[in-house]
């Protein structure tokens, strides 16, 4: 014979759902209050995390700006064809028109000997000295702008090789070598930023993991008790995951602030420097999307670190 007086508590689905959401809200804000409960150590951790994130983020911003600068150079590709000194102006004009007909060429501009002299006088500062010369020593020059399709370093080089074969051309010049080197450098920077980002992301995961580990050990008696009264692992895990979330989110925000301040601080000098090169280039900070990515990635890293730590250490805590 058995009496059936008592059964364990059961709750309906909707009241469970409502309660589960309430628990989430409590954990969400409770874990944040937990961080503010120990402001010094939390602040230190968040700062360390933010600096770890700020390094690759700053690298990214610098690379982005470097690319923006070199993009401008690439679009302004001009091939300079210096003509032989004995070529007459009329022949130079004829060649200019012929070149204009080529499919690779977007525009041509003839700089005659006379134009070149005028330009040299006005620009070089040696203008007066030129007056003492009997003859204009400067050659005529044709500036060839390739079409957009032929502006890449490789096809521009192919074009220059063809143009150099024209009989009238003495020297063909394309000042692209250093652009290519700069771009190779940027590509290297890309790889470096990626490697740096991965290493420091690993660091962030480890730092958060260790912080959560300490939090777990601190609350060991509490964890044992809630396990005894029937808490599932998910229930115990949740507040720690939220702690990881907050560490990530706050570190992401502080990192964003650091990078933005840095860009602001460097912005003035960079504009001045660009001004000296007749450029209106301005240092670009983190765009909205990039900022969201930054904070989002930081949150994911926080959750990941917390998850790894919780799944490793929670099993070890069993009630005695």
């Amino acid at each position: 014979m058995s009496r059936t007086g008592a059964t364990a508590s059961q709750a309906g689905f909707f009241s469970r759902l409502g309660m589960a959401m309430k628990l989430h809200r409590q954990n969400f804000s409770g874990s944040l209050r937990g961080l503010f409960g120990q402001p010094t150590s939390s602040l230190m951790t968040i700062t360390v995390l933010a600096i770890s994130l700020a390094l690759p983020a700053t690298f990214h911003v610098l690379l982005k700006n470097g690319k923006a600068v070199s993009q401008g150079w690439n679009q302004g590709v001009e091939i300079a064809l210096f003509l032989r000194p004995e070529i007459s102006d009329s022949r130079a004009e004829a060649l200019t028109r012929t070149l204009q007909l080529r499919s690779e060429v977007a525009a041509t501009r003839l700089v005659s000997k006379e134009d070149a002299l005028q330009e040299f006088k006005s620009r070089s500062g040696f203008g007066d000295a030129m007056d003492f010369l009997d003859e204009n020593p400067l050659p005529a020059m044709i500036l060839v702008t390739p079409t957009r399709a032929h502006s890449s370093p490789d096809s521009a080089r192919a074009l220059i090789a063809t143009l150099a074969k024209e009989r009238e051309v003495d020297v063909a010049q394309l000042d692209l070598e250093w652009v290519r080197r700069f771009q190779a450098l940027l590509q290297l920077g890309d790889k470096l930023a990626l490697a740096l980002g991965l290493i420091l992301a690993g660091g962030v995961v480890l730092i958060i993991g260790n912080t959560i580990r300490l939090a777990i050990l601190n609350r060991r008696p509490e964890i044992e008790i809630v396990k005894l009264v029937g808490a599932t692992d998910a229930f115990i895990r949740r507040p720690f995951l939220y702690t990881g979330f907050w560490y990530g989110a706050l570190a992401g925000l502080v990192c964003w602030l650091l990078v933005t301040l840095l860009v602001f601080w460097l912005g003035g000098p960079v504009s001045r420097l660009a001004g000296l090169y007749q450029s209106s280039f301005r240092l670009d900070g983190l765009a909205m999307v990039e900022s969201l990515w930054l904070v989002g990635a930081a949150i994911l890293l926080g959750l990941l670190g917390a998850w790894i730590s919780v799944s490793r250490h929670l099993k070890a805590i069993q009630p005695q």
Partner: peptide, 8 residues
């Protein structure tokens, strides 16, 4: 135990 059980 009730919080863990998800009661209202």
């Amino acid at each position: 135990p009730l919080v863990i059980g998800g009661l209202s």
